[in-house]
Design a protein around this nucleic acid. Structure first.
Lengths: 216, 216, 216, 216
DNA sequence: GATGAATGAGTGTTCATTCAT
DNA sequence: TATGAATGAACACTCATTCAT
């Protein structure tokens, strides 16, 4: 199941119209935006890093902000695609009989995704607070579409008696929180620490399972 | 117990040497930095908002970065003080016999703190990725000092048989994650949504308690 | 023998890569630096005088100091070239049998040079005290290379019995001093006075010749 | 006859109204102006070096330029005084029977003066090109008054048959040139070189004497 | 007399963007 | 399509100077 999980490569592959220079611009921009932030990165710096003339950037993107959006927007779609389409489908088709299996599959999948797209994710997280359009896009795509699907899923597992009977959106929130809490600590706050990934993932899953178990 | 929980007021109170203008500069800077980010905020904008001449800013802070640090650094100290000193003391003195009581007290305390210092917290969170010095300060003060104390606490409750026997730092990570996950969702991602705070806090506490319960 | 003796024109000719605007910037900078001094000249003033945008200056010269160096450095080379190469050669090839002939030729040559490059020379003289790099360059190129050649020349004429037998470097110092003393009085201190150049030059030469004559 | 030859001390002595702070300001200004030039020296820098508040400078000198003038102007007077009054008198009273004696006395006197007042002299030389008022003062006091006296002296020695019969002002120019050429080389251009002062002075005197000798 | 906070015009420099080539 | 010279507004920061204390 070697899914294409690098947004960048996916982007470059699909859009054949991208020139070599354009690809270099995108890669340079991602590197700089992710390290220094959008506002602190100059277009001339991107041009230099990409090995193109300053003017070339503006041939492809009318403004600097367009460049940011050209990088971040496709990511939004990619970010939600798996949830929306594939995984939900699998669950409904009884692929994941137990919530725990689903949880485990999802964590593995999203960790792989994070690893492959770290700089892009960083940009998204860092820039959302400063760009209302991004915030809006994010809310629409993630906070609503994805959240909705997960609420449906939560209700599915609740009906099966696997999850405690509290509001489904709280279930989702706490699940997300625990998973992303781990990912953030692991990859953003202390990436250089010595992590036993397997064990931490298992502990996190157990924590969620106990926390939401219907047995109690 | 009306503790002084606004960093700003605390700052203004303690340091009597602060001019009226200096206070205005700090307030204006906090507002702008928090809304648009440090890099995207110009000193002239801060001056205008503060109602002072641009030169006045540089009389008090040698550089724009100094201004940022002058705002963020005191916060670091304030941020950890309660954990480090008061709460730990209370726990040791049997004020919180049960982990659940401690959890509830801490959440209430930190929610109040967050409400009173939102813009400052935003700045801290938003700027940490771009300023290595900040990152270092944060790691030193928060990630080490605070984390350490909590690990000690976790071990305390583990010995009392209230918490499951897994590595204490994993206990702390998951507790933090659940609490801050709620706070971030509540105050940063969806502040305008209609939250039933009491209920969500209780659910979060129950989630953590079940997740870490030793009974299982 | 209409040698190209204007540094500026030489510069513009050789370096074909110079834009029209760049030439204007250089000319404006020379004018202002020479009149008001480097430190008291603003880049905006230069831009205005050159009829370009202020940013244009910094496209060609990274800093204001770079602009100064870009103007002054080529002059150093030009300043010493004739001494180092041509004239010494001529002397050795018996072109100037007598010290007096050499002296006369040199004065004429350097006076023409001075006239053609007055503003540049002014900048050099005025700025050397404030810029250690300039001072270093000057010492290396002029005070050492040129001085050395002249010492050799002085020894040559001493051997021929035309010059008194005192340390050669003292001979050079006093010759230089007398010549530049005239040039400074003539062109820098009292340029507006009514000078009989031919006569003064002749007097100066006679003064030096008598002062250094071996006859006594 | 240990004449008071330090302008600064003379200034501080005469003008009793100078406060301690004022003296410190003057000393700090001299140091900075001489090293970095008037234009490149900031008043705040002077204040810091002098250990006074920024405003204090402007209590005593209305503008920064006033400060420069307050330093440089008294020097002008001091610079010419000895020539104008004392030395001329001595010559007329047959103190210096021979031009050579006069020359030797003058060089010794002026070298002592230079050594005691180097920073002030540097300021004068460096700033004259940029300040028309200074230039004017200089011309009036030095170039005219002093020059005039010397012309008279030159004519005196010419009449006595000790100096060649060329225009007296040329005599003066060449004498000045040779003396100041030595002083400039000695104290400004190569102060760190290893000079045999006695010998160089003697050589310079001999050079002038031969150069202007009437014998030839 | 002395202070130092305050000023706002001015500094050198960077910026995103344009456009003729 | 790609270039890079050119722009001028904006930037962070400095300056000489003022003035209430």
């Amino acid at each position: 199941m070697p899914e294409q999980d690098s947004i960048l490569e996916g982007l470059f592959q699909e859009e054949e119209r991208l020139t070599e220079k354009q690809k270099k611009i995108i890669m340079a921009a991602i590197e700089s935006f992710s390290e220094k932030g959008y506002a602190a990165t100059s277009t001339s710096e991107i041009a230099k890093k990409a090995g193109v003339a300053e003017g070339t950037i503006f041939r492809h993107y009318k403004t600097k902000k367009d460049l940011l959006m050209g990088i971040v927007s496709p990511m939004m779609a990619k970010l939600i695609a798996p949830f929306v389409i594939k995984d939900l489908y699998k669950v409904i088709n009884h692929k994941y009989e137990h919530f725990e299996d689903f949880l485990r599959a999802m964590m593995e999948n999203r960790i792989a995704f994070l690893k492959n797209n770290m700089p892009l994710i960083r940009i998204l997280i860092q820039e959302i607070p400063f760009h209302p359009e991004l915030k809006e896009q994010f809310k629409e795509h993630i906070a609503i579409k994805v959240f909705e699907r997960f609420v449906t899923l939560a209700e599915y597992y609740q009906k099966k008696g696997q999850i405690i009977d509290i509001p489904a959106y709280s279930v989702v929130r706490m699940t997300f929180t625990s998973i992303f809490g781990f990912l953030i600590a692991r990859y953003l706050i202390l990436p250089e620490a010595d992590w036993d990934d397997k064990k931490e993932i298992e502990l996190t899953i157990q924590f969620i399972m106990h926390g939401l178990s219907a047995k109690d």
